[in-house]
Design a protein around this nucleic acid. Structure first.
Lengths: 114, 114
DNA sequence: TCAACACTAAAGTTCTTGCTTAACTATCGA
DNA sequence: TCGATAGTTAAGCAAGAACTTTAGTGTTGA
């Protein structure tokens, strides 16, 4: 497995902002132009554009400009990298709990054998 | 569903740093004292303590001090909140793709009927 | 043609983050 | 008891993040 630390940095960082998550939530329901993503947010359009830039840099969103409209879409496989990291952690601690309970089982049997 | 935006902010933010993810990865394999979490990191002990504080504030880690040793452990259900958010997004865009392909199917049938 | 529209670029400000060093407290073990 | 250990607190600093305003560019439609 390659070192995906910088990617994960950017992904988690991108998702740590409510404005950016709101954009992702909107784009989960389908593509949208910049102005539609920006409209509900309590900030100026340039600020929203900067958030969009963060999402694109993280690989969560791709966009294409046609005429004067830039249409944005979600990049679903980017989120799977995050999921993979979380799943790996869960596998580790579940595995540890399994070992722990197996060990406790051994102790119990040894106690009963006395 | 309550508004968990501030929680998600803290969670994603906490996970956005490689030093903090390294701590979580270590703790996934079992509890550890502060010094063990700090040792592999390329920074001073106080810096590592601050990272630990971020993880605790996010609810990802809990710790207890006994004697002069503070033992830290992972709080697994905190990660599930992150998973829930990601799952909800995936459900949305999958649902959208389903509707889209159903629509395309309708178009195809209408075309064939001509 | 020309005003409105959709976005973009640049610069400046403020707040936050991620460190550092230095000094300090409490506990343990010989 | 006393030095080593494990952690804690505080202060300060540099870089980055999240805005703002201002001033554009290119596109569209009447």
């Amino acid at each position: 497995m390659l070192n995906q630390s910088p990617n994960l940095d950017r992904l988690f960082q991108a998702l740590a902002d409510p404005a950016r998550r709101a954009m992702i939530e909107r784009l989960s329901r389908g593509p949208a132009p910049v102005s539609e993503l920006a409209r509900p947010l309590p900030m100026s359009l340039p600020a929203a554009m900067q958030h969009l830039g963060v999402l694109e840099a993280a690989g969560l969103v791709r966009s294409e400009k046609v005429g004067r409209v830039r249409t944005c879409a979600i990049e679903p496989q980017a989120l799977s990298l995050v999921e993979q990291w979380i799943d790996a952690r869960r596998r580790e601690w579940e595995h540890r709990l399994d070992r722990l309970s197996a060990y406790l089982e051994v102790l119990k049997v040894e106690e009963a054998d006395k």
